[in-house]
Design a protein around this nucleic acid. Structure first.
Lengths: 123, 123
DNA sequence: TAATTGATCAACTGATTTGTTGATTAAGAG
DNA sequence: CTCTTAATCAACAAATCAGTTGATCAATTA
Protein backbone atom coordinates (compact mmCIF):
# COMPACT_ATOMS: atom_id res chain seq x y z
CA UNK A 1 0.00 0.00 0.00
CA UNK A 2 2.98 2.25 0.51
CA UNK A 3 5.14 1.56 -2.49
CA UNK A 4 8.46 3.28 -2.00
CA UNK A 5 8.37 3.66 1.77
CA UNK A 6 8.07 7.31 2.89
CA UNK A 7 8.55 8.77 -0.57
CA UNK A 8 11.44 8.92 -3.00
CA UNK A 9 12.24 12.60 -2.51
CA UNK A 10 12.22 12.30 1.25
CA UNK A 11 15.98 12.18 1.03
CA UNK A 12 15.94 15.30 -1.14
CA UNK A 13 13.96 17.18 1.42
CA UNK A 14 15.86 15.86 4.42
CA UNK A 15 19.31 16.73 3.08
CA UNK A 16 17.97 20.05 1.85
CA UNK A 17 16.63 20.74 5.32
CA UNK A 18 20.06 20.19 6.85
CA UNK A 19 21.73 22.41 4.25
CA UNK A 20 20.80 25.52 6.21
CA UNK A 21 22.69 26.68 9.33
CA UNK A 22 19.54 27.96 11.01
CA UNK A 23 17.80 24.61 10.62
CA UNK A 24 20.92 22.71 11.75
CA UNK A 25 21.01 24.87 14.88
CA UNK A 26 17.37 23.99 15.44
CA UNK A 27 18.14 20.29 15.13
CA UNK A 28 20.97 20.76 17.63
CA UNK A 29 18.61 22.53 20.01
CA UNK A 30 15.89 19.93 19.58
CA UNK A 31 18.28 17.09 20.30
CA UNK A 32 18.22 18.43 23.86
CA UNK A 33 14.44 18.41 24.08
CA UNK A 34 11.22 19.56 22.45
CA UNK A 35 10.73 23.29 21.96
CA UNK A 36 8.13 25.78 20.77
CA UNK A 37 8.48 28.14 17.82
CA UNK A 38 9.28 31.05 20.12
CA UNK A 39 11.95 29.08 21.94
CA UNK A 40 13.50 28.03 18.66
CA UNK A 41 13.34 31.58 17.35
CA UNK A 42 15.11 33.12 20.32
CA UNK A 43 18.78 32.66 19.20
CA UNK A 44 18.15 34.14 15.73
CA UNK A 45 17.87 37.62 14.33
CA UNK A 46 15.04 36.73 11.97
CA UNK A 47 11.28 37.07 12.27
CA UNK A 48 9.15 34.43 13.91
CA UNK A 49 7.45 33.86 10.54
CA UNK A 50 10.76 32.89 9.01
CA UNK A 51 11.40 30.51 11.90
CA UNK A 52 7.95 29.03 11.40
CA UNK A 53 8.82 28.35 7.78
CA UNK A 54 12.10 26.69 8.75
CA UNK A 55 10.19 24.40 11.06
CA UNK A 56 7.77 23.56 8.28
CA UNK A 57 10.71 22.63 6.08
CA UNK A 58 12.02 20.30 8.79
CA UNK A 59 8.55 18.87 9.28
CA UNK A 60 7.93 18.33 5.58
CA UNK A 61 11.31 16.57 5.43
CA UNK A 62 10.15 14.20 8.15
CA UNK A 63 12.88 15.29 10.56
CA UNK A 64 10.51 16.68 13.18
CA UNK A 65 6.91 16.18 14.28
CA UNK A 66 4.55 18.54 16.05
CA UNK A 67 1.95 18.18 18.79
CA UNK A 68 -0.48 20.52 20.52
CA UNK A 69 -0.30 22.09 23.95
CA UNK A 70 -2.92 24.85 24.19
CA UNK A 71 -1.86 27.48 21.66
CA UNK A 72 1.69 26.16 21.64
CA UNK A 73 2.94 23.72 18.97
CA UNK A 74 5.93 21.89 20.46
CA UNK A 75 8.43 20.58 17.93
CA UNK A 76 9.90 17.11 18.42
CA UNK A 77 13.03 15.75 16.74
CA UNK A 78 12.64 12.37 15.02
CA UNK A 79 15.89 10.53 15.66
CA UNK A 80 14.91 7.70 13.33
CA UNK A 81 14.79 10.11 10.41
CA UNK A 82 18.34 11.19 11.19
CA UNK A 83 19.38 7.57 11.23
CA UNK A 84 17.95 7.03 7.76
CA UNK A 85 20.25 9.77 6.50
CA UNK A 86 23.39 8.34 8.05
CA UNK A 87 22.36 4.94 6.72
CA UNK A 88 22.24 6.31 3.19
CA UNK A 89 25.62 8.02 3.49
CA UNK A 90 27.35 5.12 5.26
CA UNK A 91 26.16 2.66 2.63
CA UNK A 92 28.30 4.34 0.00
CA UNK A 93 31.10 5.42 2.30
CA UNK A 94 31.64 1.78 3.28
CA UNK A 95 31.68 0.62 -0.32
CA UNK A 96 34.30 3.23 -1.17
CA UNK A 97 36.39 2.47 1.89
CA UNK A 98 36.41 -1.26 1.32
CA UNK A 99 37.57 -0.57 -2.21
CA UNK A 100 40.40 1.55 -0.82
CA UNK A 101 41.39 -1.22 1.55
CA UNK A 102 41.55 -3.73 -1.28
CA UNK A 103 43.76 -1.35 -3.20
CA UNK A 104 46.07 -0.84 -0.26
CA UNK A 105 46.56 -4.58 0.13
CA UNK A 106 47.26 -4.93 -3.56
CA UNK A 107 49.85 -2.17 -3.45
CA UNK A 108 51.49 -3.63 -0.36
CA UNK A 109 50.53 -1.68 2.75
CA UNK A 110 52.63 1.37 3.52
CA UNK A 111 51.02 4.12 1.49
CA UNK A 112 47.84 5.23 3.25
CA UNK A 113 45.96 5.33 -0.09
CA UNK A 114 44.73 8.62 -1.70
CA UNK A 115 43.88 9.28 -5.33
CA UNK A 116 44.62 6.04 -7.13
CA UNK A 117 42.01 3.67 -8.57
CA UNK A 118 42.77 4.45 -12.18
CA UNK A 119 46.23 3.71 -13.64
CA UNK A 120 44.69 0.37 -14.41
CA UNK A 121 42.65 1.48 -17.43
CA UNK A 122 45.24 3.95 -18.68
CA UNK A 123 46.30 1.64 -21.52
CA UNK B 1 46.13 30.05 9.06
CA UNK B 2 42.96 28.02 8.57
CA UNK B 3 40.65 29.21 11.29
CA UNK B 4 37.46 27.18 11.25
CA UNK B 5 38.79 24.01 9.63
CA UNK B 6 37.46 23.56 6.06
CA UNK B 7 34.98 26.40 6.34
CA UNK B 8 31.78 26.92 8.29
CA UNK B 9 29.45 26.55 5.34
CA UNK B 10 31.13 23.37 4.17
CA UNK B 11 28.26 21.56 5.86
CA UNK B 12 25.80 23.80 4.03
CA UNK B 13 27.32 22.91 0.71
CA UNK B 14 27.75 19.22 1.47
CA UNK B 15 24.16 18.65 2.59
CA UNK B 16 22.94 20.80 -0.27
CA UNK B 17 24.97 18.67 -2.66
CA UNK B 18 23.26 15.51 -1.41
CA UNK B 19 19.82 17.09 -1.66
CA UNK B 20 19.66 16.32 -5.37
CA UNK B 21 18.86 12.85 -6.77
CA UNK B 22 21.23 13.26 -9.71
CA UNK B 23 24.13 14.08 -7.42
CA UNK B 24 23.25 11.26 -5.04
CA UNK B 25 23.27 8.85 -7.95
CA UNK B 26 26.70 10.17 -8.85
CA UNK B 27 27.94 9.56 -5.32
CA UNK B 28 26.55 6.04 -5.52
CA UNK B 29 28.34 5.49 -8.83
CA UNK B 30 31.60 6.96 -7.54
CA UNK B 31 31.57 4.74 -4.48
CA UNK B 32 32.30 1.93 -6.95
CA UNK B 33 35.25 3.74 -8.50
CA UNK B 34 36.44 6.96 -10.12
CA UNK B 35 34.65 8.10 -13.27
CA UNK B 36 34.83 10.77 -15.94
CA UNK B 37 32.18 13.37 -16.72
CA UNK B 38 30.95 11.37 -19.69
CA UNK B 39 30.70 8.20 -17.66
CA UNK B 40 28.78 10.01 -14.95
CA UNK B 41 26.51 11.64 -17.52
CA UNK B 42 25.55 8.38 -19.20
CA UNK B 43 22.59 7.36 -16.98
CA UNK B 44 20.91 10.78 -17.20
CA UNK B 45 18.75 12.53 -19.74
CA UNK B 46 20.41 15.89 -19.23
CA UNK B 47 23.19 17.69 -21.09
CA UNK B 48 26.84 17.14 -20.30
CA UNK B 49 27.06 20.76 -19.23
CA UNK B 50 24.46 20.16 -16.56
CA UNK B 51 26.39 17.11 -15.38
CA UNK B 52 29.55 19.18 -15.29
CA UNK B 53 27.82 21.67 -13.02
CA UNK B 54 26.62 18.92 -10.71
CA UNK B 55 30.17 17.69 -10.38
CA UNK B 56 31.34 21.19 -9.59
CA UNK B 57 28.75 21.39 -6.85
CA UNK B 58 30.04 18.13 -5.38
CA UNK B 59 33.62 19.36 -5.69
CA UNK B 60 32.91 22.73 -4.10
CA UNK B 61 31.21 20.85 -1.27
CA UNK B 62 34.41 18.87 -0.72
CA UNK B 63 32.72 15.56 -1.49
CA UNK B 64 34.82 14.77 -4.56
CA UNK B 65 38.23 15.68 -5.94
CA UNK B 66 39.47 15.73 -9.51
CA UNK B 67 42.68 14.77 -11.22
CA UNK B 68 43.98 14.88 -14.77
CA UNK B 69 44.38 12.10 -17.29
CA UNK B 70 45.01 13.60 -20.73
CA UNK B 71 41.82 15.46 -21.61
CA UNK B 72 39.83 13.46 -19.09
CA UNK B 73 39.10 14.77 -15.58
CA UNK B 74 38.41 11.72 -13.41
CA UNK B 75 36.21 12.36 -10.39
CA UNK B 76 37.13 10.74 -7.09
CA UNK B 77 34.82 10.32 -4.09
CA UNK B 78 36.22 11.56 -0.76
CA UNK B 79 34.99 9.08 1.82
CA UNK B 80 36.30 11.21 4.68
CA UNK B 81 33.97 14.02 3.69
CA UNK B 82 31.03 11.62 3.88
CA UNK B 83 32.17 10.60 7.32
CA UNK B 84 32.16 14.21 8.49
CA UNK B 85 28.50 14.40 7.55
CA UNK B 86 27.48 11.27 9.41
CA UNK B 87 29.52 12.52 12.37
CA UNK B 88 27.50 15.73 12.46
CA UNK B 89 24.18 13.91 12.25
CA UNK B 90 25.09 11.15 14.71
CA UNK B 91 26.23 13.68 17.27
CA UNK B 92 22.70 14.99 17.68
CA UNK B 93 20.94 11.71 17.03
CA UNK B 94 22.84 10.15 19.93
CA UNK B 95 22.00 13.02 22.25
CA UNK B 96 18.32 12.69 21.39
CA UNK B 97 18.35 8.90 21.73
CA UNK B 98 20.08 8.91 25.09
CA UNK B 99 17.45 11.37 26.26
CA UNK B 100 14.74 8.96 25.08
CA UNK B 101 16.41 6.12 26.91
CA UNK B 102 16.48 8.09 30.15
CA UNK B 103 12.80 8.84 29.73
CA UNK B 104 11.97 5.20 29.11
CA UNK B 105 13.71 4.17 32.29
CA UNK B 106 11.89 6.84 34.23
CA UNK B 107 8.54 5.72 32.90
CA UNK B 108 9.31 2.08 33.62
CA UNK B 109 10.22 0.25 30.42
CA UNK B 110 7.32 -1.11 28.41
CA UNK B 111 6.28 1.79 26.24
CA UNK B 112 8.81 2.10 23.40
CA UNK B 113 8.83 5.93 23.80
CA UNK B 114 7.43 8.34 21.15
CA UNK B 115 6.39 11.96 21.60
CA UNK B 116 6.82 12.66 25.28
CA UNK B 117 9.47 14.90 26.82
CA UNK B 118 7.15 17.70 27.89
CA UNK B 119 4.38 17.07 30.47
CA UNK B 120 7.05 18.16 32.94
CA UNK B 121 6.79 21.89 32.28
CA UNK B 122 3.03 21.87 31.81
CA UNK B 123 2.54 23.52 35.22
C1' DT C 1 47.99 21.69 -39.42
C1' DA C 2 43.23 20.12 -39.20
C1' DA C 3 39.72 17.30 -37.05
C1' DT C 4 38.01 14.91 -32.97
C1' DT C 5 37.21 14.14 -28.18
C1' DG C 6 36.46 15.58 -23.31
C1' DA C 7 35.16 19.14 -20.77
C1' DT C 8 34.32 23.97 -19.40
C1' DC C 9 32.72 28.94 -19.87
C1' DA C 10 29.01 32.40 -20.67
C1' DA C 11 24.52 33.99 -20.91
C1' DC C 12 19.90 33.23 -20.29
C1' DT C 13 15.27 31.15 -18.50
C1' DG C 14 12.06 29.14 -15.13
C1' DA C 15 11.41 27.38 -10.66
C1' DT C 16 12.42 27.37 -5.91
C1' DT C 17 14.19 29.36 -1.46
C1' DT C 18 14.69 32.75 2.17
C1' DG C 19 13.33 36.53 4.01
C1' DT C 20 10.21 40.53 4.75
C1' DT C 21 5.59 43.01 6.25
C1' DG C 22 0.74 42.90 7.30
C1' DA C 23 -3.40 40.45 8.29
C1' DT C 24 -5.63 36.43 10.42
C1' DT C 25 -6.71 32.32 13.36
C1' DA C 26 -6.90 30.00 17.80
C1' DA C 27 -6.58 29.46 22.66
C1' DG C 28 -6.36 31.45 27.40
C1' DA C 29 -6.68 35.19 30.82
C1' DG C 30 -8.85 39.42 32.70
C1' DC D 1 -16.56 40.18 25.45
C1' DT D 2 -11.85 42.06 25.12
C1' DC D 3 -6.93 41.63 25.34
C1' DT D 4 -2.83 39.08 25.03
C1' DT D 5 -0.04 35.26 23.46
C1' DA D 6 1.40 31.69 20.04
C1' DA D 7 1.56 30.75 15.63
C1' DT D 8 0.18 30.70 10.80
C1' DC D 9 -1.42 32.57 6.17
C1' DA D 10 -0.79 35.65 2.10
C1' DA D 11 1.68 38.36 -0.96
C1' DC D 12 5.74 40.05 -2.34
C1' DA D 13 11.16 40.96 -3.33
C1' DA D 14 15.86 39.22 -3.72
C1' DA D 15 18.84 35.53 -4.30
C1' DT D 16 20.00 31.09 -5.77
C1' DC D 17 19.55 26.75 -8.50
C1' DA D 18 18.93 23.47 -12.41
C1' DG D 19 18.67 23.30 -16.86
C1' DT D 20 19.25 24.89 -21.63
C1' DT D 21 21.99 26.53 -26.05
C1' DG D 22 26.11 28.20 -28.22
C1' DA D 23 30.93 29.19 -28.08
C1' DT D 24 35.55 28.10 -26.38
C1' DC D 25 39.63 25.59 -24.59
C1' DA D 26 42.85 21.72 -24.21
C1' DA D 27 44.74 17.43 -25.51
C1' DT D 28 44.96 13.58 -28.78
C1' DT D 29 44.86 11.73 -33.39
C1' DA D 30 44.97 11.72 -38.51
Amino acid sequence: MEPDAQGPDTLDRAFMALADPVRRAMVARLSRGDATVNELAEPFAITKQAVSKHIQVLEHAGLVTRSRDAQRRPVHLDAAALERLTAWIDQYRLIAESRFRQLDELLGAGIPHEEQTRKEESK
